[in-house]
Amino acid sequence: MSEGKISRDLEKEISEMDPMQEISVVIKLGELNDEVLAELSEIGRIEMVIRLTRHVQLRIRVKDIATLLAKEYIVFIDKLRVMRVT
């Protein structure tokens, strides 16, 4: 895994998963444009895009996370985290 590009929590979570299993990840992009989105669509299924902060939620197979990390426009990948009412 590319050092520093993936959160420890996600790293830990996927280490316990089957490579063919799917997981939703949160990607922070350095640039967000149609080309990048098209490329991400080939790797996984885009579930949500936040243009103001350049975040993408991507449904992806665990084995494909390595491919994702190799992309230059990827700043950081984290797991999808729970929010709830207070």
């Binding site: 949160v26 579930e47 949500m48 936040i50 902060t53 975040h55 939620q57 999808l80 729970v82 929010m83």
Partner: peptide, 12 residues
């Protein structure tokens, strides 16, 4: 319950 992406999208 929800997710941090969902909340961020809501704010957007």
């Amino acid at each position: 319950n929800g997710t941090n992406m969902g909340v961020a999208k809501g704010v957007e």
